[in-house]
Amino acid sequence: MDSTFIIEKSVVILVVFGVTMLMAMYSTWAERKVAAYLQDRVGPNRAGWGGLFQPLADGLKLFAKEEFAPNTPNQFLFRVGPGIAMATALMTSAVIPWGDRLHLFGRDILLQATDINVGILYIFGIVSVGVYGIMIGGWASNNKFSLIGAIRAASQMVSYEVAMGLSIVALLMMTGTLSLKEISEQQAGMNWNVFYQPISFLIFLICAFAETNRTPFDLAECETELIGGYHTEYSSMRMGFYLFAEYANMFISSTILAVLFFGGYNYPGMSWVAENWGVNLANIIGIGALFVKLCGFIFFYMWVRWTIPRFRYDQLMHLGWRILIPLSIINIMITGVVILRGEIFAYLGW
């Protein structure tokens, strides 16, 4: 392992980290702006042009606020909860291919922190750990509302992870790989997976809403019933970390949706651009294409939030266990039959 490799990877990791933070920051701004526009309002417009410095002002405010901790026997857990939520939210971005590769300084630079061959499994694993941040925070708060919120979040995320994993299985049967890089490469041109696996996409989308605790599945922090859910007792930047982790999760899940189903960094005419204008430019446009797609998903998240009211808890469980899981199993079976149709036809002698 030479030193240039380490430098290259550190730069990629730092850029990915910075971009994730920036996107999470500006998602809060976008959320307020989109909410305002959908409700015929103007939204934040005092801090900077169009309120663009609003996230900075919010962050400054959160840092300056008094840090209040409840009288709880679990001081350590209370402190560590937001950290776990934030760390897991940022870790998932490591395996996402932001673009193909850039040719700089005589080297091929892979636009991905690491291309491990179990990329999707890694993401699922990290996302499951993310529950602990919420669970520990809610438990350590020593507050009934926090505890109920945390329990809701845990059972909701565990239930929907099953449906999410099963919905991906059908896709993986088609692609034959778990590496996000290879999945992106297979979708070159307009060969996007969403055209082959629309049901898988729909289930994954619904589960992504539930996994990120977004409306209509935000039962973990529903203000009307639980004050703030698991972060009721949190104040200052600790609460900021929870909210920030939520937005980072939203950014990452939008990216995964774009990579798995909407062709990742591919765009129509990419090979033509690579031939005529050079590989670097083609891939920079590719990064732009990925960002357009994922920003579309982030907008969709917000759009849905201000359209659909929250589910009741039994409805949520009903949808997860009795509709989405059977549906994804049927989808797996149909996909299997379609993949093996040649063998089946040969067996039947048609």
Binding site: Y37, L38, Q39, D40, R41, V42, N45, V304, T307, I308
Partner: peptide, 21 residues
């Protein structure tokens, strides 16, 4: 029904704002 609802909200996105600066 959800798609219909999304259609209604997006119409408001482009509507004239009810508030003023």
């Amino acid at each position: 029904a959800i798609l219909k609802g999304l259609g209604i909200t997006i119409k408001h996105f482009f509507r004239k704002k009810a508030t003023i600066n």
